[in-house]
Computed example of a mutant assay.
Amino acid sequence: MKVPLVFCFIFLGIQAWCQNLIPNGGFEDENICTEYVRNCAPEAWIATSLHANYYFDAAIMEHTVAAHGGTHYLGITAGSLGMVGIRNFVRSRLLCGLQEGHQYKLVMFVYAQTPVLDSIGVYFSEQDYLCEKRYFRHIVPQLWSIDGMKRSAEDTRNWKKVEWLYTANGTEGFITIGNYKRIDYKGINKTDTRSEYYFYVDDVSLTPVDSTEQLCPQADSIKSAIYLENERHSILDRKIYALRRQPPPIIPLPKTAEKKFKIQKIDTLVIPDIFFATASYELSPVSFHLLDSFANKITTYQVDSMIVEGHTDSIGKLAYNENLSKNRAMSVKNYLVNKVADLNEKSVTRGFAYLRPVASNSTPKGRQMNRRVEIILYREE
């Protein structure tokens, strides 16, 4: 069983895909079934029947349909020329529970060689659809593709993008896709395999409309547990039979999390040169009270970083003033990090000599203002 690494780049489309509440929505991760030890199904997705093939790999199979993305896609039985009421549904467990009243965007790409796209249904359920005892004609999906198709666009490969906005009721645990039309289609003479006709699905995503809503912290572990469901074929048939006789208790999924934005504040303290010995970087005792008071405040903050900058007036050579400004900044930093735990690794010192004056160096008062150390503290609130 392959569990690939997923890298999220800062592109809007990919970033949204990384918030996908549906595992393996592109069907590229292959499941190795327990019974035949073959990659005959996608991870996370289980069909209600495996008597008909539903997993296609365009890279190795001679088929008329190329995948919308990657090489894999699903083919879902929409009906049969030989038998009435033949359907196949595919379901997957969601990675997180949905927030009641919140909206989610569901997107998928569909294709069919027959006119069946108007009857694709999407059904959200609290219980696993594999436990469902009702006939599909008695189930009403929350979403129909006829609504999504009104806003869809056809690309050059005939895949149609179907997009809905879904308002959650807060009980959703599974998503199921299939043809929920109660009456079989008339006038279809061409089949996809044997006597059955299909519609195809690729690149399914369910993402929160609110950008501050994120995947729950347990999403990775839930995905790993979903990927461990390796029952397919006759083992799956026996599992479905047992589940329908005695459905397991419903275990609600942890809800999506709201991203908390941190407010950053910047505090600045200016230390004049009177707190240093003349022409020295040694702190004078009169500076201790000010620095102790500042250190006490720091201990109450959640500090991101601290920058300590030293500055001088323009008297003297640049090299001398650079060393003096750096050393004074270092003296202040060392004093504070000895007072505040874990501050050292968050601190940076800089010396700018006389290159960043705040007043004119042509007067004694201006030069005194330029001789200073500035502490810039970045903290979260």
Rank of each mutant, 00 (worst) to 15 (best):
residue 129 Y to L: 10
residue 7 F to W: 13
residue 309 E to G: 01
residue 363 T to L: 06
residue 245 R to M: 14
residue 377 L to T: 06
residue 309 E to M: 02
residue 143 L to T: 03
residue 82 G to S: 15
residue 261 F to V: 12
residue 110 V to G: 11
residue 191 T to W: 04
residue 202 D to I: 08
residue 207 T to W: 01
residue 372 R to G: 00
residue 97 G to D: 01
residue 10 I to Q: 13
residue 136 F to N: 01
residue 99 Q to D: 03
residue 148 G to Q: 06
residue 181 K to R: 15
residue 356 R to H: 05
residue 248 P to A: 10
residue 92 S to Y: 03
residue 313 D to H: 07
residue 223 K to G: 06
residue 275 F to C: 13
residue 230 N to W: 05
residue 303 V to K: 01
residue 368 Q to I: 04
residue 228 L to Y: 05
residue 119 S to R: 13
residue 242 A to E: 12
residue 27 F to P: 03
residue 211 S to P: 03
residue 149 M to T: 01
residue 164 W to R: 14
residue 274 I to N: 10
residue 277 A to L: 14
residue 319 A to H: 04
residue 348 V to K: 15
residue 114 T to L: 09
residue 370 N to L: 03
residue 278 T to K: 14
residue 287 S to W: 03
residue 310 G to Q: 06
residue 260 K to T: 13
residue 60 I to F: 11
residue 31 N to F: 06
residue 141 P to K: 14
residue 33 C to A: 09
residue 18 C to H: 05
residue 153 A to L: 13
residue 111 Y to K: 15
residue 156 T to P: 02
residue 97 G to K: 03
residue 118 D to W: 11
residue 12 L to N: 11
residue 34 T to V: 08
residue 262 K to T: 09
residue 270 V to Y: 12
residue 310 G to H: 00
residue 19 Q to R: 15
residue 376 I to D: 03
residue 87 R to Y: 00
residue 204 V to Y: 05
residue 103 Q to W: 00
residue 86 I to K: 14
residue 348 V to W: 13
residue 136 F to Q: 07
residue 266 I to L: 12
residue 199 F to N: 02
residue 184 D to F: 03
residue 146 I to R: 15
residue 280 S to M: 07
residue 124 F to K: 07
residue 147 D to W: 11
residue 71 T to C: 08
residue 348 V to T: 11
residue 145 S to W: 08
residue 105 K to N: 12
residue 332 V to W: 07
residue 156 T to C: 10
residue 186 K to N: 07
residue 378 Y to R: 14
residue 16 A to Q: 13
residue 327 N to F: 07
residue 54 Y to N: 12
residue 92 S to G: 00
residue 291 L to N: 07
residue 187 G to K: 14
residue 339 K to I: 11
residue 371 R to N: 13
residue 277 A to M: 12
residue 317 K to A: 08
residue 250 I to V: 14
residue 170 G to Q: 10
residue 98 L to F: 07
residue 274 I to F: 09
residue 235 I to Y: 11
residue 64 T to R: 15
residue 330 M to A: 14
residue 207 T to E: 04
residue 129 Y to E: 00
residue 32 I to D: 04
residue 93 R to D: 06
residue 286 V to G: 05
residue 239 K to G: 05
residue 371 R to I: 12
residue 9 F to L: 15
residue 353 A to H: 03
residue 256 T to G: 00
residue 150 K to Y: 08
residue 92 S to P: 00
residue 173 G to E: 05
residue 146 I to G: 09
residue 303 V to P: 04
residue 200 Y to V: 01
residue 87 R to N: 09
residue 294 F to W: 12
residue 220 D to Y: 13
residue 355 L to W: 08
residue 113 Q to W: 10
residue 193 T to M: 15
residue 31 N to A: 14
residue 280 S to C: 02
residue 187 G to N: 12
residue 149 M to I: 08
residue 284 S to D: 12
residue 91 R to E: 11
residue 163 E to V: 02
residue 217 P to H: 07
residue 172 E to Y: 07
residue 203 D to A: 12
residue 274 I to G: 02
residue 128 D to N: 10
residue 149 M to Q: 04
residue 209 V to T: 11
residue 353 A to M: 04
residue 212 T to Y: 04
residue 260 K to C: 13
residue 214 Q to T: 08
residue 142 Q to H: 09
residue 57 D to H: 07
residue 369 M to P: 02
residue 327 N to G: 04
residue 303 V to F: 06
residue 351 G to R: 09
residue 148 G to V: 00
residue 24 N to E: 01
residue 353 A to K: 10
residue 139 I to G: 08
